[in-house]
Simulated scan of single mutants.
Amino acid sequence: MGSATAQALVASSSALNAAQGITLDVAGELFSVGRLIGESTALSGALADPAAPAEARTSLVSRVFAGASAPVQDVLRAAVAERWSSAADLVDGVEELAVRATAIAAPDADIEGELFSVSRLVAGNADLELALGSRLGDGEGKAALVQRLVGASLNPATTLIVTSLVRQPRERRVRRLLNRAMRIVSAQRDRIVATVHTAAPLSAEQRSRLGAVLTGRYGRQIALNEVIDASVVGGLRVQVADDVIDGSIAARLADLRQKLAG
C-alpha cells in the first residue's frame, strides 16, 4: 500500500464515520458501487486520475451514481477527492469502506467470529474453496452458493460481506478476502483479532481471562477466534497479527528436545 493510499483510506474512513444514516442497505450499495467501479477500467482510472482536479472526480461520481443514496454519494465523493496510489487501490478502498459500513450498521453482530467460522469452513472443504475461487462461473452463482450453505446461520451483516466478496474476488483467494474483512471490521471497532489454538474448547471464564490479559498486553480490545487443534496437546498458542505467544505443551516439549539435542 502506497503512502497516498494509506492517507486516502484514513480520510475516507473518517468521512464514513461522520456520515449519517449508515444502514445495511447503504453498505450493500457501497459493495455494488465498488463492483461497478472495479469492472470498468475507464471509470476506475478516471476516478483515481491524479492529474484530474478533485472537483472533476467528485462531479463524475455525482453523474455516474446519481441514483445512489445520499450517504453513498457523500462517502464516494469524499473517497475520490483523495489521492490514491493506483486505480486498483481505489477499488480496494471502496470495498473496505463497504465492509466498515457493514460493521457500523450492525454494531452488536459477531461479524469477526462468523467470518472466521466461514473461513474455517472454506479451509476444510477443498471443493468449496475451488468453487468459490474458480474463474469459471458467475459471481451471482457463487453468492447464491454461499447463501445456501451458510446464509441461514449467519447474521445478515456477515452474509452481506461474504456474498459481496465472492461476487468479485479479483483473483484473490477466498480465505484471504475473509481474513482481510475480519481485520477491517476489527479496525472499525477499534480492536484486534487474536487466534487461539487450543486442544480443548475454552470455557467462558477462560475466554474472559485470556481476553483481559491480551487487552492489557496490546492496549486494545480483543476479538478472540478459537481453533481446536490436537497438535497443541495442552496449553494455548495465541497469534495476534505476526506476534505468536506459544504456551502449549507441544512447544515446551519441542524446546526441551532441542536443548537435549544441543
Results as ranks from 00 to 15, higher is better:
121 L>M: 13
221 Q>Y: 05
58 T>R: 11
48 A>I: 10
55 E>Q: 12
33 V>S: 04
36 L>C: 15
188 Q>R: 12
237 R>W: 05
246 D>Y: 08
183 R>Q: 15
24 L>H: 11
230 A>G: 13
111 I>T: 05
245 I>H: 01
128 L>H: 08
13 S>V: 10
68 A>T: 00
20 Q>H: 13
201 P>V: 12
169 P>G: 04
83 R>P: 00
240 V>F: 00
2 G>D: 03
60 L>V: 07
130 L>S: 14
82 E>C: 12
206 Q>P: 09
89 D>C: 03
180 R>V: 10
247 G>H: 07
114 E>L: 10
86 S>H: 12
113 G>A: 12
25 D>R: 06
199 A>D: 10
214 L>P: 00
93 G>A: 07
31 F>V: 02
76 L>A: 10
27 A>F: 03
234 G>W: 11
109 A>H: 10
156 P>G: 06
3 S>V: 06
50 P>A: 08
162 V>I: 09
236 L>W: 15
93 G>F: 02
155 N>C: 06
127 D>K: 04
163 T>M: 01
10 V>D: 05
224 L>P: 03
195 T>W: 08
240 V>P: 00
56 A>C: 04
142 K>M: 02
125 N>A: 12
103 A>I: 05
59 S>L: 07
213 V>M: 13
260 L>Q: 09
122 V>F: 05
178 L>A: 11
12 S>T: 01
113 G>K: 01
75 V>K: 02
179 N>Y: 14
105 A>H: 01
193 V>P: 04
89 D>A: 12
152 A>H: 11
120 R>N: 11
117 S>P: 07
120 R>S: 13
115 L>Q: 01
92 D>W: 12
115 L>H: 03
149 L>K: 05
54 A>G: 06
56 A>E: 13
190 D>N: 15
69 S>F: 00
2 G>S: 01
221 Q>A: 15
18 A>M: 11
120 R>A: 13
16 L>D: 00
51 A>W: 13
105 A>E: 09
87 A>H: 08
194 A>T: 05
244 V>G: 05
50 P>F: 09
120 R>D: 11
